[in-house]
């Protein structure tokens, strides 16, 4: 069944888009002709990103922990964008590699 709208939660404000992507690091072996003969995945990275129309939320900075989708991950990048023809928007990218223990940066004082 098709899914309409942004159904995931996470990030800030009135979500306009949300995405989850995963990538893997893969080692490979090649023969004398340069053709790959073996591939071995050894690490996986899950990354979430969202963009929302700012609605007054307190926006954390990069390095803080945030819940995106169904898991708590570290913010890799957050940007607040204002324009003279529209609403302020907040974009955030966060993720986790493998099953790494995540330790957030302390908030700036």
């Amino acid at each position: 069944m098709a899914t309409f709208g942004v159904t995931s939660t996470g990030g800030y404000g009135m979500l306009q888009n949300f995405s989850k992507s995963s990538s893997a690091e893969i080692a490979e072996a090649r023969d004398e002709n340069g053709l790959a003969t073996d591939e071995q995945a050894y690490s996986r990275d899950i990354e979430y990103s969202s963009e929302g129309i700012f609605d007054g939320d307190t926006v954390l900075e990069a390095g803080a922990a945030i819940t995106m989708g169904s898991e708590t991950v570290l913010i890799r990048n957050v940007s607040e964008n204002e324009t003279n023809t529209g609403y302020k928007r907040v974009s955030v990218t966060a993720g986790v590699k493998d099953s790494a223990t995540q330790v957030a940066l302390a908030a700036r004082t």
Partner: peptide
């Protein structure tokens, strides 16, 4: 419509 909420419903 100028802007929509999370469900796609116009609010601006």
């Amino acid at each position: 419509t100028f802007a929509r909420d999370q469900t796609g419903k116009p609010f601006a």
